[in-house]
Amino acid sequence: TFELKGKVGKVVKIAEDHYLVEVEGDKWIAYSDEKLSLGDRVMVVDVDGLKLKVKRIP
């Protein structure tokens, strides 16, 4: 999972307290300090167990 840091993915689902992002064909639970929208491109900035911390990228 640490090899996911720096990888780019996209938001595929928005849940009440987390996001579902697809990175390299796999779906992961993710969270972010900013509000994300469906389809946003994101970069993995940290890995916390099986959850990814992501940030939006242009």
Rank of each mutant, 00 (worst) to 15 (best):
K55D: 14
G9D: 00
G6K: 00
A30V: 05
D48K: 07
E22Y: 02
D33R: 11
K10V: 09
G39M: 08
K5M: 15
S37L: 06
D40H: 05
K53T: 14
V23M: 06
M43W: 04
D40K: 04
G49Y: 11
G39W: 07
S37W: 10
K35S: 11
V54E: 00
L38G: 07
M43T: 13
D26N: 15
S32V: 12
K55T: 03
T1D: 14
P58R: 04
E22K: 05
R56G: 12
S37G: 13
L52M: 05
M43D: 11
D46L: 03
R56N: 07
V47M: 13
K13E: 11
F2W: 08
V42I: 15
P58S: 06
L36C: 06
H18Y: 07
P58W: 06
E24N: 05
L4D: 03
M43K: 03
I57C: 04
S37H: 05
D46T: 04
K5S: 07
G25L: 12
L52T: 06
K35E: 11
H18W: 05
T1R: 15
E16N: 10
Y31T: 05
V11A: 06
W28H: 07
I14F: 06
E3S: 01
H18S: 14
R56K: 07
V42H: 01
R56E: 11
E34D: 08
I29F: 08
K10P: 13
G6Y: 01
V23Y: 01
K51C: 04
V54K: 00
E3L: 03
K35M: 13
L38W: 10
V45A: 06
Y31H: 05
M43Y: 11
V44H: 01
G49K: 15
K55Q: 14
G39P: 06
S37T: 10
L38E: 09
K10N: 15
W28R: 05
V54C: 03
V21G: 01
G6V: 00
K27M: 08
E16S: 11
K35V: 08
L50C: 04
D33A: 05
P58F: 07
K55P: 00
E16D: 04
I14L: 09
K5W: 09
D33C: 05
L36Y: 14
V44Y: 02
V11R: 00
W28T: 02
G6N: 03
E24S: 07
G49A: 12
A15G: 11
I57G: 14
K10A: 15
V42L: 06
E16L: 06
G39S: 07
G6M: 01
K7H: 03
K13Q: 06
P58E: 13
L36S: 03
L52Q: 01
T1V: 06
V11G: 00
F2H: 14
H18M: 11
V21N: 00
I57A: 04
K7S: 03
K55W: 06
Y31V: 09
K7M: 03
V54R: 00
V12A: 14
K53N: 15
D48E: 13
V8K: 11
L4E: 02
K27D: 03
V21S: 02
R41P: 13
F2P: 14
I29E: 12
K27G: 07
L36G: 01
D26A: 15
L38M: 08
E22P: 01
G39F: 14
V54Q: 00
K13D: 08
V8F: 07
R56H: 09
G49I: 03
D33Y: 08
V45R: 03
V42T: 12
E24M: 05
K7C: 02
K53D: 14
V54L: 03
L50R: 04
G9V: 03
K53P: 01
K51H: 06
G9W: 01
G25Y: 14
G6A: 01
D17Y: 06
L50T: 10
R41C: 07
W28S: 02
E16K: 09
G9F: 02
V23T: 02
V45P: 00
L38Q: 12
Y31E: 13
G49D: 07
L38K: 07
D33V: 10
V23F: 02
E16W: 08
G39V: 15
E3Q: 05
V45G: 05
E34Y: 07
S32N: 15
S37A: 11
K7N: 02
G49L: 12
F2K: 15
S37D: 07
D40Y: 12
D26Q: 15
G25H: 09
L36I: 14
D33M: 06
V21L: 07
I57E: 14
D46E: 10
L36R: 01
I14C: 04
K5G: 06
I14Y: 09
I29T: 12
K10H: 10
K51V: 09
K10G: 12
L52V: 13
G9M: 02
D33N: 09
D26H: 14
E34M: 06
D48C: 06
R56V: 09
D48F: 04
K51L: 15
D46Y: 04
S37M: 05
I29C: 03
D17H: 07
K13F: 13
W28D: 01
R56W: 10
V42D: 00
I14A: 11
D33L: 03
V12S: 11
K27R: 13
Y19T: 11
V21W: 01
L52P: 03
L38A: 11
D33Q: 07
Y31D: 14
V44S: 01
V23H: 02
G39I: 15
V44I: 04
L20W: 04
V45Q: 13
E16P: 10
G9L: 02
G6W: 02
V54G: 01
V54S: 01
L50S: 12
L52W: 01
K7Q: 03
V47L: 10
Y19F: 11
H18N: 07
G49Q: 06
W28Q: 02
E16M: 12
M43C: 04
S37F: 03
E22I: 03
D46N: 04
L20Y: 12
Y19P: 04
K35A: 10
T1W: 14
T1K: 15
L20N: 13
A15C: 05
K10D: 14
I57D: 15
E34G: 04
A15H: 10
L36D: 00
H18K: 09
F2D: 13
D40M: 08
G6P: 00
E34L: 08
